[in-house]
Design a protein around this nucleic acid. Structure first.
Lengths: 213, 213
DNA sequence: ATGTATCGAAACGAGCCGTTTCGTTCAAGT
DNA sequence: ACTTGAACGAAACGGCTCGTTTCGATACAT
């Protein structure tokens, strides 16, 4: 994303000379250089090589500058992630089935496959298993995002497409669960082919129980 | 598990005096002490505090002894996990619905909730996001376990309970996905209440599409 | 003009990494 | 009976990252 194309170390050279203080205030160029560097490090080395030191070297920034604005590396990763998540619009196709398919194709699996957003998100999930603060941040983020997705079901109910008694929370949970599982097993690309089967299985049942023939 | 009850440092004192070599062969007492210590460290400090040094200190063992038998800390965590996974028998209740409910209650969510197996499994999943070898080991383990669970569907087909055309792989994937998602969000205890709704939603559809009334 | 908050650079002590060395204990091979 | 060799615990190695502190230079804010 942004403008990462040069294969050399030119990515972080937003300014030719070294950045300096611009006075008693935050230097936006440094913040952007740090986020760019964090993004690049995650892209190239994954979470294993993601250290504050590595980001600082890459950004030609001082470690105290990073620690001043981000309390820990999880916060930095979350900021990198948030730079991505607004680049695609949420689907409203007029039907729940195609809404969910578009959700998986554009916002979950497809998003993770195309950008390095999947790598960042994997790193955040892994970090949340270690760090209590990261877990809380991730859970809050999940609640927010699922509430937005739940509106797909609400719209379907308003259209009379599904019954009012349907548990939309469960439906959303299952879609997201599937996407997470494939992401964490490194099967995002392969899972793209199963999207329609997953959505149909969720909407109509995987086992053919009580279906009208 | 085993006999962890003493709150002091008595856990690792399987022998009063220090263990020594028993000749040119593996010392089972050391292996058990190391696995006990690894288990205890994971239980008390989580994956964040899980280092080879910490395990060696806790076990009163030398680091070379650990590195001799386990190539990395992921392998050690997997061995800790494998000491648990055979303590409960796989269900065969005679019906697919109750089989899947028992699977979630006894082998996935319930298992993770009751023992520290959930903590260990979270650590392994997190490690798999960093380490390529860990990811491969985890994926292989997943394939094996899912193949065993798939036999539930195979039995149901043999009984004529579900149609031969049903995609059992998808069904198993969805059940496991749900369990993983709740585990990784730290919601295992809360998810226990949703088990029946999840299984019914998977078998008969979450959205009430094409169901006979 | 002064005060102050930022910047990058460098160095700090601490902890863990994975490895090596050392002296020991003792089964296995001769 | 004797030697060989592997496994054991302990200790130390160089290397890396951690999070913090110090420093001089910079330039907005008052």
């Amino acid at each position: 994303m942004t403008h990462i194309e040069g294969m050399e170390t030119s990515t972080e050279d937003t300014d030719d000379s070294a950045r300096r203080s611009i006075g008693a205030r935050r230097n936006p160029a440094s913040q952007e250089a740090i986020l760019d560097a964090a993004e690049a490090v995650l892209k190239e080395s994954g979470i294993g090589g993601f250290s504050i030191e590595a980001v600082a070297r890459r950004a030609r920034a001082g470690k105290p500058t990073i620690y001043r604005w981000w309390p820990n590396r999880t916060a930095l990763m979350l900021d990198v992630y948030k730079r991505f998540k607004n680049t695609r619009t949420f689907p409203d196709t007029g039907a729940l089935r195609s809404d969910l398919i578009a959700l998986l194709e554009n916002h979950l699996l497809g998003f993770w496959k195309d950008s390095l957003c999947g790598t960042v998100y994997r790193a955040i999930i892994a970090e949340a298993q270690n760090d209590r603060d990261a877990a809380a941040s991730l859970y809050t983020y999940q609640v927010e995002r699922k509430a937005v997705v739940l509106q797909m079901v609400t719209r379907a109910k308003a259209r009379g497409e599904v019954d009012e008694a349907v548990d939309g929370t469960l439906l959303v949970d299952m879609v997201v669960s599937f996407a997470w599982h494939q992401l964490l097993l490194g099967r995002v690309a392969e899972a793209m082919d199963s999207i329609e089967a997953v959505v149909d299985g969720l909407l109509m049942g995987c086992a053919g129980y009580q279906r009208k023939e």
